[in-house]
Amino acid sequence: MMGEKRKIDARGSFCPGPLMELIAGMKAANVGDELEVLSTDKGSAADIPEWVKKVGHEILATTEENGVWHITVRKAK
């Protein structure tokens, strides 16, 4: 099943921050949806995958471009 693709623009977000924005986005998403988080916090490259793995979703891609991290996650359950 192809899910929807959505962007979460969490650039410049210190609080709640990119991971909290992703968790909120995941709650609103359906299984199969892909969420791309944009973050200017390099910590996101580590803490987003850690949470995604712990809960059992899926990381599809992590890239960095001009100081902005793009982390794409699929809601798996």
Binding site: F14, G17, I23, D47
Partner: peptide, 10 residues
């Protein structure tokens, strides 16, 4: 707390 530290602000 939801994320990996006790508050979102580091």
């Amino acid at each position: 707390y939801p994320i990996g530290r006790v508050h979102s602000l580091e």
